[in-house]
Amino acid sequence: MHPAIRVVLLTLIGLFFLFPIVWVFLMSFQTNETILRIPPSLVFEPTLQNYTALISGRLETGAGVLELAFMQNLWNSFVLSFCSVALSLLLGVPAAYAFARFKFFGSEDIAFTLLSFRFAPALLVLLPLNLYFQDIGLNDTYIGLIWVYQLITLPLILWIVRGYFEDISPDIENAYRVDGHSWFSTFMKISIPLALPGIAAAALLSFIFAWNNFVFALILASADKQPVTVGALAFVTASGIQYGQIAAAVVLSILPTLALALYAQRYLVEGLSLGAVKG
């Protein structure tokens, strides 16, 4: 293909996929009035008022001043996602190793059952869970949410990391054992380091999934434990939808995961494709 044509085509495709994000980004610098102009226009006077409102926590609308907990939401998102992934790694990596190395009775079934949590419609699980959580006092707590978030993060980590462990030749581990090292030391010094790219990819991916979760927190958390995804609902106010603030919130909540993803892009693609093949 001629290089020039290739450039044109790639630009078109790029525009097509990036358009929503670019549009949201532009929206975040506009007032509701300019956003709602018909026809929409690319020419506007940029304003930072959406961002100041989010950061200061005070949103002035036509109907009065609204208190916003956006920064708290952002912090909640971070706590929930980070702790969920950490817990999943702690539980999932050894489990993944076990599933990769030991074929015991029913091992495939158990591994599949764990994966099948991903298939269950979240709402079906959540409504009864909500009642139980209220009974045992886990409702509206970080611990309760992190526990439920395991449904998202654990299967992902388990299945991706398992593929990585299966890729390590057992002979390398055997060699280390024969050298005189204990089982645990072999796991820590050989298996974990060699599977590290996969573990990193799985962790990153499940972090993104946890970050983007909406429905778990919507039902199980109240305002002070809500992540940004739920917190964004606050912009649907009595006097209308605050598009500008929503856009700014979206931009702010994308930033951490975007930075993380860009940083670990190579691992991510590698980890995903391997998981696809082996999982």
Partner: peptide
Amino acid sequence: SPEVRETGVAFQNFALYPHMNAFENIASP
């Protein structure tokens, strides 16, 4: 268990530890 048996094994596929240099590989036992 293998770590207490006094055997040295050279594997057919070498089974070197890819993240350690040759020195550390040999030093492992």
